[in-house]
């Protein structure tokens, strides 16, 4: 009987190979397999020649993975969004913090609507059109509170070392988003002065607090973004007063929340995934709910006590 030799050449990507010892560990794993003819170690892969009738490439990759190294036929870069979305739906353990964030946001949002209802009721006693004047703005305000708080909660749930690059990104993004969302909403309800003041103070506060994870540079970038966002926000709503601002707001809020989601995604990918040194220390739901409640209550008081804008008067 003639035995056929099916010679296969295959490049297997192993991004975790760091030194000679790693090579040797894999060499020993390959030496135990039948059918391997030769192999060459390259910078991030192993080029293997083997007899396909004796061994399959999946078995070779399995032997490598058993030793703790990733092995794949494709170069392993970042996970594509679709892959991660699938993983997110299935691996509740890996994404436990993220699931907790979504739970916190949902529960808090529903409970905060009670505060909004109280506001409308109180305003409604002197202003029969309170609901139609303030309804949308209160909704956007509540969305802004829980999404910004959620993003901050998520960021703070992981204790890790932040590079300047990442810290700056976090400070800038959270500072800008806080400033622009609260600035826009408070500008619409109570005019440019109040809107810009609230937006800027909140934006600078959040930006500096979150950017501080990487030092002065992060604080500075966070503050800068807070000033920019906080002052730009009221400009948007007030200048659009005569031009369908209520049609604009849903899309505006959608993009801003998407940016916050993107930030949380980035934090997970850059800082958390694959990092053995990261520690999970999330704040509890009570803290989250309490914090959001206080912030919303203060903002509602500001809306009540400062002169209303032409929008809502």
């Amino acid at each position: 009987m003639w035995s056929q030799r099916f010679e296969m050449k295959q490049k297997i990507y192993c991004p975790d190979i760091m030194c000679e010892s790693c090579n040797k560990v894999i060499e020993r794993a390959l030496a135990k397999l039948q059918g391997i003819q030769s192999y060459i170690f390259r910078e991030d892969s192993v080029d293997v020649e083997f007899d396909e009738s004796l061994i399959k490439v999946e078995q070779i990759m399995g032997a490598i993975r058993e030793k703790g190294y990733r092995a794949s036929l494709e170069p392993l870069g970042k996970k594509r969004i679709k892959e991660r979305a699938k993983e997110f739906l299935h691996d509740k353990q890996k994404y436990q913090i993220e699931y907790q964030m979504l739970r916190n946001i949902t529960v808090t949002f529903l409970l905060l609507l009670v505060l909004d209802a109280l506001f409308i009721y109180y305003k409604g006693r002197t202003e029969p059109t309170a609901f139609s004047n303030y309804g949308w703005w209160l909704l956007y305000l509540t969305v802004a509170v829980v999404t910004v708080a959620g993003a901050i909660w998520h960021f703070k749930a992981y204790k890790a070392q932040y590079t300047c690059m990442v810290g700056m990104m976090i400070g800038m993004t959270l500072g800008m988003q806080t400033g622009i969302m609260f600035g826009a909403i408070l500008g619409a309800t109570n005019g440019f002065f109040v809107g810009a003041l609230v937006g800027m103070i909140m934006g600078v506060g959040v930006g500096a607090y979150c950017g501080s994870c990487c030092g002065v540079m992060g604080i500075m970038e966070g503050m800068m973004a807070g000033v920019m966002g906080g002052t730009m926000g009221p400009m948007i709503t007030l200048m659009m007063f005569n031009d369908r601002v209520l049609w604009f707001m849903p899309l505006f809020m959608f993009f801003n929340v998407a940016i916050l989601i993107g930030l949380s995604y980035m934090i997970f990918e850059e800082v958390v995934e694959g990092n053995n040194e990261v520690v999970r220390k999330p704040w509890g739901l009570a803290v989250f709910l309490g914090g959001c409640g206080i912030v919303l209550a203060v903002l509602l008081l500001i809306i009540l006590l400062t002169p209303p804008s032409i929008f809502v008067a």
């Binding site: 760091m18 030194c19 010892s21 790693c22 040797k24 560990v25 020993r28 030793k67 703790g68």
Partner: peptide, 13 residues
């Protein structure tokens, strides 16, 4: 021995 995989190698052997 200078890294984690060095440890893994010795354990393996």
């Amino acid at each position: 021995m200078h890294c984690k995989s060095c440890k893994a190698l010795v354990e393996d052997v």
